[in-house]
């Protein structure tokens, strides 16, 4: 029981201090492993791999996995709820304040600077995933042959899916995800 509460407290702390994406939780989980020995670093590596290959935010997947390994189903649920609790409290407070000051010219000025910046951050994420999914940067660096740079199968799938999504603009993104997953399995990506 004591360990259970301690685990919830540690995840609450992670949720409170990990600023940014789900990957920001990983250093905290390493620290917990070193401090309490609840799981080994080897296990953590497996958990990261599974969290990245299943749907859902990575941080949420990680906390569910760790909690489940420690205390079964109640552990998985409580670890995740502890992780998101600080967000829910903080964001509800921020959302309330934002509602009140939405029409304030200072707030509007600040957000007019933030929106294009967020667009830049997202472009940066897009470039990273393009390089990972459509190109073989490592193979190109190793051989120096320009033909090794392109992941042709993936580029053809990209072109086909893009054309399809432009033709069927009302399509739900879920449909594109499912088609691509099936194509990956069928053509052995």
């Amino acid at each position: 029981m004591k360990t259970f509460l301690l685990m919830c407290l540690e995840f609450f702390k992670t949720g409170l201090f990990a600023v940014g994406g789900g990957l920001a939780t990983i250093p905290f989980l390493k620290e917990i492993s070193a401090k309490y020995g609840w799981y080994s670093l080897d296990m953590l590596t497996t958990m990261i791999a599974v969290s990245e290959s299943t749907p859902g935010p990575i941080g949420v997947n990680m906390s569910t996995y760790v909690g489940f390994e420690m205390f079964g189903i109640p552990g998985g649920i409580l670890a995740t709820l502890s992780l998101v609790a600080p967000s829910v409290i903080i964001i509800c407070a921020v959302a309330k304040a934002l509602k009140q000051f939405k029409d304030n010219p200072i707030v509007q000025g600040v957000f007019s600077g933030l929106r294009p910046a967020v667009c830049g951050f997202i472009l940066s994420a897009v470039v990273s995933i393009f390089l990972m999914a459509l190109f073989h940067v490592d193979a190109f660096k190793a051989s120096g042959a320009i033909t090794d740079l392109f992941n042709w199968k993936a580029i053809i799938l990209f072109a086909a899916l893009y054309a399809f999504s432009q033709w069927q603009k009302k399509l739900h993104p879920i449909v594109i995800i499912i088609i691509a997953a099936a194509a990956g399995v069928v053509f052995g990506f």
Binding site: C119, A133, L134, A154, F158, Y162, I177, A180, A182, F189
Partner: peptide, 23 residues
């Protein structure tokens, strides 16, 4: 692993369209 590689390509398509719209 094959399915995930395919899904990565789908994420490229969806994010590409999204970022153009936002821009």
């Amino acid at each position: 692993q094959h399915a995930l590689k395919g899904i990565q390509v789908a994420v490229c398509v969806l994010m590409f369209t999204a970022v153009i719209g936002l821009y």
